[in-house]
Protein backbone atom coordinates (compact mmCIF):
# COMPACT_ATOMS: atom_id res chain seq x y z
CA UNK A 1 0.00 0.00 0.00
CA UNK A 2 1.29 3.41 -0.90
CA UNK A 3 1.73 6.17 1.59
CA UNK A 4 0.57 9.75 1.50
CA UNK A 5 3.86 11.16 0.31
CA UNK A 6 3.78 8.72 -2.59
CA UNK A 7 0.42 10.11 -3.65
CA UNK A 8 1.74 13.65 -3.45
CA UNK A 9 4.73 12.66 -5.55
CA UNK A 10 2.45 10.90 -8.04
CA UNK A 11 0.43 14.08 -8.47
CA UNK A 12 3.54 16.26 -8.77
CA UNK A 13 4.94 13.99 -11.46
CA UNK A 14 1.67 13.92 -13.37
CA UNK A 15 1.59 17.70 -13.37
CA UNK A 16 5.20 18.03 -14.46
CA UNK A 17 4.78 15.43 -17.22
CA UNK A 18 1.70 17.20 -18.55
CA UNK A 19 3.56 20.49 -18.67
CA UNK A 20 6.77 19.10 -20.13
CA UNK A 21 5.00 17.25 -22.92
CA UNK A 22 2.68 20.05 -23.97
CA UNK A 23 4.81 23.17 -23.59
CA UNK A 24 8.21 24.19 -24.86
CA UNK A 25 9.88 25.62 -21.77
CA UNK A 26 13.44 25.93 -23.02
CA UNK A 27 12.72 29.34 -24.50
CA UNK A 28 15.48 31.60 -23.21
CA UNK A 29 14.74 34.99 -21.67
CA UNK A 30 18.08 36.23 -22.96
CA UNK A 31 16.92 35.48 -26.50
CA UNK A 32 14.14 38.02 -26.02
CA UNK A 33 16.52 40.61 -24.60
CA UNK A 34 18.99 40.18 -27.47
CA UNK A 35 16.21 40.27 -30.10
CA UNK A 36 15.08 43.56 -28.61
CA UNK A 37 18.59 45.00 -28.79
CA UNK A 38 18.97 43.97 -32.45
CA UNK A 39 15.57 45.48 -33.25
CA UNK A 40 16.47 48.82 -31.65
CA UNK A 41 19.74 48.89 -33.60
CA UNK A 42 17.92 47.99 -36.81
CA UNK A 43 15.28 50.68 -36.31
CA UNK A 44 18.01 53.24 -35.59
CA UNK A 45 19.87 52.30 -38.79
CA UNK A 46 16.66 52.45 -40.82
CA UNK A 47 15.91 55.93 -39.49
CA UNK A 48 19.35 57.54 -39.70
CA UNK A 49 21.10 55.88 -42.64
CA UNK A 50 18.20 54.93 -44.85
CA UNK A 51 15.88 57.82 -43.94
CA UNK A 52 12.90 55.55 -43.45
CA UNK A 53 10.37 58.19 -42.39
CA UNK A 54 7.03 57.09 -43.79
CA UNK A 55 4.19 59.62 -43.52
CA UNK A 56 1.48 57.50 -45.08
CA UNK A 57 1.22 54.23 -46.93
CA UNK A 58 2.39 55.63 -50.27
CA UNK A 59 4.59 58.62 -49.44
CA UNK A 60 7.38 56.47 -48.12
CA UNK A 61 7.66 54.76 -51.46
CA UNK A 62 8.38 57.97 -53.36
CA UNK A 63 11.10 59.20 -51.05
CA UNK A 64 12.48 55.92 -49.88
CA UNK A 65 12.89 54.08 -53.16
CA UNK A 66 16.62 54.61 -53.45
CA UNK A 67 17.33 53.13 -50.06
CA UNK A 68 14.96 50.16 -50.37
CA UNK A 69 17.65 47.48 -50.86
CA UNK A 70 19.51 48.83 -47.82
CA UNK A 71 16.37 48.76 -45.71
CA UNK A 72 15.55 45.22 -46.76
CA UNK A 73 19.11 44.18 -45.91
CA UNK A 74 18.89 45.71 -42.42
CA UNK A 75 15.53 44.06 -41.83
CA UNK A 76 16.78 40.64 -42.94
CA UNK A 77 19.99 40.96 -40.92
CA UNK A 78 17.96 41.85 -37.81
CA UNK A 79 15.67 38.87 -38.38
CA UNK A 80 18.50 36.39 -38.95
CA UNK A 81 20.45 37.62 -35.92
CA UNK A 82 17.38 37.47 -33.67
CA UNK A 83 16.31 33.99 -34.79
CA UNK A 84 19.89 32.69 -34.73
CA UNK A 85 20.46 33.97 -31.20
CA UNK A 86 17.14 32.55 -30.02
CA UNK A 87 17.96 29.10 -31.41
CA UNK A 88 21.48 29.17 -29.98
CA UNK A 89 20.44 30.29 -26.48
CA UNK A 90 17.40 27.99 -26.33
CA UNK A 91 19.57 25.05 -27.38
CA UNK A 92 21.84 25.86 -24.45
CA UNK A 93 18.91 26.07 -22.06
CA UNK A 94 17.44 22.81 -23.39
CA UNK A 95 20.78 21.08 -22.86
CA UNK A 96 20.88 22.30 -19.27
CA UNK A 97 17.36 20.98 -18.69
CA UNK A 98 18.37 17.64 -20.18
CA UNK A 99 16.02 18.01 -23.13
CA UNK A 100 16.53 18.21 -26.84
CA UNK A 101 15.92 21.49 -28.66
CA UNK A 102 14.08 19.66 -31.40
CA UNK A 103 11.28 17.64 -29.84
CA UNK A 104 7.53 17.24 -30.05
CA UNK A 105 6.82 20.52 -28.22
CA UNK A 106 9.24 22.76 -30.10
CA UNK A 107 8.00 21.29 -33.39
CA UNK A 108 4.41 22.11 -32.50
CA UNK A 109 5.40 25.62 -31.41
CA UNK A 110 7.09 26.27 -34.75
CA UNK A 111 4.21 24.91 -36.83
CA UNK A 112 1.69 27.10 -35.01
CA UNK A 113 3.87 30.19 -35.35
CA UNK A 114 4.75 29.61 -38.97
CA UNK A 115 1.24 29.97 -40.41
CA UNK A 116 0.71 33.63 -39.39
CA UNK A 117 4.37 34.43 -40.02
CA UNK A 118 4.30 33.04 -43.57
CA UNK A 119 1.06 34.87 -44.34
CA UNK A 120 2.53 38.11 -42.97
CA UNK A 121 5.79 37.67 -44.85
CA UNK A 122 4.01 37.12 -48.15
CA UNK A 123 1.73 40.10 -47.53
CA UNK A 124 4.80 42.27 -46.93
CA UNK A 125 6.25 41.18 -50.29
CA UNK A 126 2.95 42.14 -51.94
CA UNK A 127 2.91 45.53 -50.19
CA UNK A 128 6.49 46.23 -51.23
CA UNK A 129 5.79 45.30 -54.82
CA UNK A 130 2.86 47.77 -54.82
CA UNK A 131 5.00 50.51 -53.27
CA UNK A 132 3.07 50.53 -50.00
CA UNK A 133 6.19 50.69 -47.84
CA UNK A 134 4.47 52.67 -45.12
CA UNK A 135 2.36 49.66 -44.21
CA UNK A 136 5.28 47.25 -43.79
CA UNK A 137 6.07 48.07 -40.15
CA UNK A 138 2.42 47.82 -38.97
CA UNK A 139 1.93 44.54 -40.84
CA UNK A 140 5.06 42.96 -39.31
CA UNK A 141 3.79 43.91 -35.85
CA UNK A 142 0.29 42.54 -36.42
CA UNK A 143 1.32 39.20 -37.91
CA UNK A 144 4.15 38.69 -35.44
CA UNK A 145 1.64 39.38 -32.68
CA UNK A 146 -0.74 36.78 -34.11
CA UNK A 147 2.10 34.25 -34.26
CA UNK A 148 3.00 34.91 -30.61
CA UNK A 149 -0.62 34.72 -29.54
CA UNK A 150 -0.78 31.26 -31.13
CA UNK A 151 2.57 30.30 -29.63
CA UNK A 152 1.37 31.13 -26.12
CA UNK A 153 -0.52 27.85 -25.98
CA UNK A 154 2.69 25.89 -26.49
CA UNK A 155 5.18 27.75 -24.31
CA UNK A 156 5.15 30.22 -21.39
CA UNK A 157 1.68 31.74 -21.31
CA UNK A 158 3.16 35.24 -20.93
CA UNK A 159 4.03 35.05 -24.63
CA UNK A 160 0.31 35.31 -25.31
CA UNK A 161 0.14 38.73 -23.64
CA UNK A 162 3.21 39.87 -25.58
CA UNK A 163 1.37 38.81 -28.75
CA UNK A 164 -1.70 40.86 -27.88
CA UNK A 165 0.44 43.92 -27.16
CA UNK A 166 2.22 43.56 -30.52
CA UNK A 167 -1.13 43.32 -32.31
CA UNK A 168 -2.37 46.50 -30.58
CA UNK A 169 0.82 48.38 -31.48
CA UNK A 170 0.47 47.19 -35.07
CA UNK A 171 -3.10 48.42 -35.35
CA UNK A 172 -2.25 51.81 -33.83
CA UNK A 173 0.74 52.20 -36.13
CA UNK A 174 -1.37 51.31 -39.17
CA UNK A 175 -3.51 54.34 -38.33
CA UNK A 176 -0.62 56.66 -37.40
CA UNK A 177 1.86 55.64 -40.07
CA UNK A 178 4.03 58.65 -39.23
CA UNK A 179 4.85 56.95 -35.92
CA UNK A 180 5.08 53.43 -37.31
CA UNK A 181 8.86 53.08 -37.10
CA UNK A 182 8.84 54.37 -33.52
CA UNK A 183 6.03 51.97 -32.59
CA UNK A 184 7.90 49.17 -34.37
CA UNK A 185 10.94 49.94 -32.21
CA UNK A 186 8.71 49.82 -29.12
CA UNK A 187 7.11 46.51 -30.17
CA UNK A 188 10.15 44.63 -31.39
CA UNK A 189 12.73 46.40 -29.22
CA UNK A 190 11.36 47.53 -25.89
CA UNK A 191 8.68 44.86 -25.41
CA UNK A 192 11.11 42.04 -26.27
CA UNK A 193 13.61 43.36 -23.75
CA UNK A 194 10.99 43.76 -21.02
CA UNK A 195 9.48 40.32 -21.70
CA UNK A 196 12.94 38.73 -21.87
CA UNK A 197 13.95 40.21 -18.51
CA UNK A 198 10.66 39.06 -16.99
CA UNK A 199 11.06 35.47 -18.26
CA UNK A 200 14.68 35.42 -17.13
CA UNK A 201 13.92 36.53 -13.57
CA UNK A 202 10.78 34.46 -13.24
CA UNK A 203 11.99 31.14 -14.69
CA UNK A 204 15.75 31.08 -15.06
CA UNK A 205 17.19 31.95 -11.71
Amino acid sequence: MKEEKDYIRDLAEIRSMMERTSKFLSLSGWAGIMAGVYALAGAYLAYTYFHFKPEDALAAADKGRGSLPGLVLVALATLVLAVGTAVFLSAGKARKRGEKLWNATSGRLLVHMSVPLMAGGLLILVLMSKGLLGLVAPVTLIFYGLALYNAGKFTYSEIRILGLLEICLGLVSAYFIGCSLLLWAVGFGLLHIVCGIYLHYRYER
Binding site: D10, E13, I14, R15, M17, M18, T21, S22, A104
Partner: peptide
Protein backbone atom coordinates in the same frame (compact mmCIF):
# COMPACT_ATOMS: atom_id res chain seq x y z
CA UNK B 1 4.79 5.62 -12.11
CA UNK B 2 5.90 4.98 -15.68
CA UNK B 3 2.39 4.08 -16.77
CA UNK B 4 1.10 7.12 -14.93
CA UNK B 5 3.65 9.20 -16.85
CA UNK B 6 2.52 7.75 -20.19
CA UNK B 7 -1.10 8.53 -19.36
CA UNK B 8 -0.24 12.09 -18.27
CA UNK B 9 1.61 12.75 -21.50
CA UNK B 10 -1.16 11.31 -23.66
CA UNK B 11 -3.86 13.14 -21.70
CA UNK B 12 -2.58 16.53 -22.88
CA UNK B 13 -1.50 15.53 -26.41
Amino acid sequence: RIRLGIMSALAVN
